[in-house]
Each structure stands twice: as structure tokens, then as C-alpha cells.
Amino acid sequence: MNVDSSILDIIRAKKLIERRDIAPRIREEGDFVVVDAKGLHYRILNEVVYELAEKYKKIKLINVNGQRYIADGLRGDYYIEIHGTAGDDLGAFMNGPEIVVYGNVQDGAGNTMNAGKIIVHGNATDILGHSMRGGVIYVEGDVGYRVGVHMKEYKDQVPIIVAGGTAGDFLGEYMAGGRIIILGLKRRFTSEIVGDWIAAGIHGGAIYIRDSIEEDRLGYGAKIAEFTEEDKKYLAKILEEYCRTFGYDLNKILEHEFTKIVPESHRPYGKMYTD
């Protein structure tokens, strides 16, 4: 490697978790290692998480208050529990870990994640699951704008986002694969289950919305497809774990009307150019 990082290595020879100001924040609790994140800068907190990940598989972060990038680029079968509000880009580029948040998450959770699971016992904000390629995101409550933007799928990697509440505008924009399911069980801020310009630019994947949606709410390139028995069976399978996680009644959810939104074409711009 031509990157001159040798000096960095020398500076970082001493681990953060052994430092006098950090060590008292860390304690073992059963299989878990617990870190008190109160007032810690995200760079320090995330370095601590990475250092602990060398030894522990289960990490619990308490008093999290907006620290960004937790578990970014982390690879492996870790279980990370977060108590508090996780900051932007939670689990971005992550590949495998399961993150459970007891609280809300801010923008970009699951950004470009490849595999793993993010469970949010609360709400999520904008661009949740941006470009995610695999794994699942379950949100108990509402999600923000541009959720699932540019989500894609590849072979057996089919990412799934499920939100129990409502979603903002541009849901599933530029979607190229995967599934988004919006249940609208709790509608605290709005009576609409989703915002406008649904699935604008979609060219792969599908969105299920647990309500009737008029065609004119859809964005460019999207259309409404028939919600079949097969779709219902698929949802029953997908939502089983979701309902178990948040204590919702699966049968009651499935009783309601669903709208399925799919792309008009997988090649929307096929005739736009000429040589």
C-alpha cells in the first residue's frame, strides 16, 4: 500500500479503550459489552465500537444522542443495541451486523448497506435505506422523505424496508430493486399514509402501501399493479418477523386493502437517445 499511514499507526498504537478517560465508560454485562456514549464525539465512539468488535460480538451503546456513523462499514455477525437517538448514516455501508435501536434514527440509516438488519423502535427520518442492496430495515413508526431512494437488488440479495407508520414524499424514488412496505398503522402527524411523487423514476422492485392510492399520486415511471393473493402470501411471510418484533397483529394488518406499485418499464429511457 502506498498510503503513508505508518505514522498514524504509531500514534494509534495505544487503544482508545485502554485510555483513562474512556475505560470507565465500558463494562461487561452478560454477553454484552456496554459503552456509555454520553457526550462522546462520534469519532471516538465509533473507534471504541470498532476496537470492541475485535473482542465482543454483542455491543450495547447507552445514552446515544445523535452520534453519527455508528457501525459504518462494519462487517460480520455483530449484534449492536443502541439506546437513545442514533445520528445520521447509522450502519452505512455495513455488511452483516444486526442493529436494534431503542429510540429514533436520523437521516440516512442503512445508506448503501449490503447485508444485515436495522430495527428501529421509534421513527426514522429522510433517505432511510438509500441505495441499500441487501438486508432489512424495520421501523416501528414513521419514516421521512426519499425513503428507499435508489434501492437495488441483485440475485438473492433483495433489500426490504418496512415502516409501521407513514412515509414522506418521493418514497422509493429511482428504485431499482427491493421491496418497501408502508403500513400506516399510526398516523400521528398526517392523515396521508405516504407523501406525493411516489416511486418517481422507479425501474425495478415493488412498493406495498396499506391503503388505496390514486394513480395521480404516483411519480414518473410508476404504475399500480393488481394486488394478488400471491402478494398477500408474500407479505404474510415478510411481515411475520416484523409483527413479532413490534407486537403487531399480522392478521389484522393483512385484512386491510393494499396498493402495489411497480415500474412501468425496466428500461424507462430506451428510446430517448439516438446515435
Binding site: G108, N111, I127, E153, Y154, A176, G204, H266, G270
Partner: peptide, 21 residues
């Protein structure tokens, strides 16, 4: 190409004008 880009064979690979984040 599909394997390297990690998208299905034959689907348009669309890079939007802006980064949506």
C-alpha cells in the same frame, strides 16, 4: 457487468443527476 455492478442482467444502470443524500 451485472456481477460487478451488482444489478440484474439487462436492467438500465441509472446514475441520477444528483446524489440523493
Amino acid at each position: 457487468i451485472s456481477q460487478t455492478r451488482m444489478i440484474p442482467v439487462g436492467s438500465d444502470a441509472i446514475s441520477p443527476a444528483p446524489h440523493h443524500d
